[in-house]
Simulated assay, not measured.
Amino acid sequence: MSGGELQTGKSAGRKSALRAAIALAVFIGILIAVYLARPNDFLLYIKAFHVIAVMSWMAGLLYMPRLFIYHSDAEPGSAQSETFKMMEQRLLRIIMNPAMMITWVLGLYLAWDVYDFRGGWLHAKIGLVVLLTIVHVVFSRAVRGFAADGPRRTPRYWRMMNELPTVLMIGIVILVIVKPF
Rank of each mutant, 00 (worst) to 15 (best):
V51Q: 04
V135A: 05
W112M: 10
W121V: 01
M161A: 14
G77A: 12
T166I: 15
K179I: 01
R118I: 00
R118E: 10
V137E: 06
L44H: 07
V143R: 03
M55Y: 06
A12K: 12
I177V: 15
L106K: 09
A53R: 04
V176H: 01
D41R: 11
M96G: 01
M1N: 12
T8R: 06
I170N: 05
T166R: 14
W112N: 13
L108C: 11
G13D: 14
L122Q: 03
A111M: 11
A20T: 15
L24F: 09
N40D: 14
I102S: 04
L62C: 10
Q80Y: 06
W158C: 08
P155C: 07
M64S: 07
G120C: 02
Y109C: 06
M64F: 06
K179Y: 01
H136A: 10
I46M: 09
R141W: 09
V143H: 03
M86P: 00
V167H: 02
L61T: 03
A99V: 06
A99R: 04
F42G: 10
E5S: 12
A99T: 04
E82I: 00
E75T: 12
A147R: 13
A17N: 08
K15F: 11
Y115V: 00
M58S: 01
A25K: 07
M1I: 09
P76G: 04
S16I: 08
A111W: 05
L61E: 05
I134Y: 12
F68G: 07
E88L: 12
V54G: 01
I32K: 09
A148P: 05
G77R: 09
T133K: 02
S78Q: 07
V26K: 09
W112H: 13
A124M: 06
L43Q: 13
L24C: 11
A33T: 13
W112D: 14
P151I: 01
K10C: 00
S56T: 04
Y70R: 14
I134M: 12
G119Y: 01
V130W: 12
R153P: 03
M87Y: 11
I174C: 03
A59G: 11
W104P: 01
T8L: 10
F117Q: 03
M87C: 01
G150H: 11
G77H: 10
I170R: 08
G107I: 04
S81E: 07
R14K: 14
R19E: 13
R19V: 08
T8I: 08
A48I: 10
H50V: 01
Q89D: 11
W121A: 00
A79M: 02
